[in-house]
């Protein structure tokens, strides 16, 4: 089976059945939880301070649930209505928006103390329609520019994703940099084909202190 993002746009791929399957699959839950904790760690938030976070491509709220448990308030956006419906059924605390991140955000400057995203932004690499506004570079540019503005200074965005090539990583990081972000890519388990995870760690301003953790 080829990768989901090559089969159909996310709002089609994650229909009612896929959305429930995804949410109930314990292996997916575990991987998603691990990556959320890792993203939180890389976010390097000030300790013991409840933050206001954006969950990009929140899906059914698997990571939102963890943000809640860690004492944070979150807002989730996703383009798949079926996923959001499952999130609603799970009665989580976060506000949810039906939104295509490739169209950009309308959040006021400095709205969020940080952003996370788990297994989402590879979807931006596929053109949704033939309309010129939906070419991957245009979608990535709108996404990163409006995300940068929505984050406070200093803060971070940590976006785990599944690139298929180094060229894709290059494209994504160069557009993020043009949008004003510092930071770079952190690769966990680089030598394991199965466990390898790529995190884009983006800084607004100083990013809140330290260098990208190893």
């Amino acid at each position: 089976m080829s990768r989901p993002e090559l089969q159909a746009p996310p709002e089609i791929y994650y229909g009612d059945i896929e959305a429930k399957k995804y949410t109930q699959n314990t292996r997916i839950q575990q991987i998603q939880a691990d990556m959320t904790y890792r993203a939180l760690e890389l976010l390097n938030l000030p300790p013991d301070q409840p933050a206001f976070l954006l969950d990009i491509g929140c899906g059914s709220g698997l990571s939102g649930e963890i943000l809640e448990e860690e004492g944070h308030t979150w807002v989730g956006v996703d383009v798949a209505p079926s996923m959001l419906e499952v999130a609603l059924e799970r009665e989580l605390e976060g506000d949810l928006f039906l939104q295509d991140i490739g169209q950009g955000f309308g959040f006021r400057p400095g709205s969020f103390d940080g952003a996370i995203s788990v297994s989402v932004i590879q979807w931006l690499l596929n053109a949704e329609t033939s309309h010129p506004s939906s070419s991957p570079p245009r979608r990535l540019t709108r996404f990163f520019t409006t995300l940068h503005s929505a984050l406070r200074n200093p803060s971070r965005a940590v976006l785990q994703f599944y690139p298929t090539s180094d060229d894709q990583i290059q494209l994504i990081t160069s557009i993020a940099q043009k949008a004003g972000f510092g930071g770079g890519v952190v690769v966990d388990y680089p030598n394991s084909k199965k466990a390898k995870k790529v995190f884009l760690c983006l800084f607004v301003g100083s990013g809140g202190g330290q260098q990208v953790p190893k």
């Binding site: 609603l88 949810l96 928006f97 039906l98 939104q99 295509d100 169209q103 309308g106």
Partner: peptide, 8 residues
């Protein structure tokens, strides 16, 4: 159903 549709 509590969810704003922000699609353009």
């Amino acid at each position: 159903n509590g969810i704003p549709n922000m699609l353009l």
